[in-house]
Design a protein around this nucleic acid. Sequence first.
DNA 1: ATCTATACACACCTTGAGGTAACTGACGTG
DNA 2: CACGTCAGTTACCTCAAGGTGTGTATAGAT
Lengths: 126, 126
Amino acid sequence: MFDFCNSMTDEQDGRARELIERAAAKWPLRILHVLSDAGAPLRFSRLLERVEGISQKVLTQTLRTLERDGLVIRTLYPQVPPRVEYELTPLGRDLLMQVVSLWRWIVEHLDDFDARKAVKLTAARA
Amino acid sequence: MFDFCNSMTDEQDGRARELIERAAAKWPLRILHVLSDAGAPLRFSRLLERVEGISQKVLTQTLRTLERDGLVIRTLYPQVPPRVEYELTPLGRDLLMQVVSLWRWIVEHLDDFDARKAVKLTAARA
DNA sequence: ATCTATACACACCTTGAGGTAACTGACGTG
DNA sequence: CACGTCAGTTACCTCAAGGTGTGTATAGAT
């Protein structure tokens, strides 16, 4: 049914899996979403305000990971006090769009995600 | 850019987020994939063999969660020794298809996920 | 001299997912 | 009566993500 899965090398599968796991962590998608909504580069402290509930430490961590993955760009302006701006890369924007389409599908089918709606066949045939 | 995000209630967003986080955990997608490939109900021990590396405990845990979410159906045949079969629900199949399309997109763009490919603008304008 | 703002770094702690290994219950088999 | 099978359960441990709280460099403003 998913022939393409078998046409992947193990390395491709591994890397894709890593990316999914990193992106599906607690904060990355929120951050990408905030950056996308802003439509313009955001400073560190703006992100800290808009990504509700995140701590400074985790925001820096997550941003570094997103940067390494090529999803955001970090621009440092050597001023005092320092100024750093973050913005989405085209890849980040594209990834977000892919995820959003999945998200939309889930929201549309939210009522189905419930075991009580699943037909139970418990042992009728046994 | 993602207008539909703002047309969601907080509750919808929260539930969708929970589902994503659960589904993107270490094992659920593998299990769904194995069940899908099998094309037929699988016994517990068949899953244990085919989902490489998973332990009994985690397999049961994960299957229970998938069952609660309405993604798999558990059928118990009251025999001795016991026989239990797991199969995908239509919803599970559909979810897997959505995720696979995301997966495919990621694999196709795997080479782009690398910070070295991102254009760096480090402070040229400062 | 003190205070403030910015974007962190560092040390510490909590929490939960996941791993490991042993045990269970019911029954048919030798 | 011991043994193996199946689908778990239970107790215990580990490890890393994430949370909390503080420290730091710099220079302009008061």
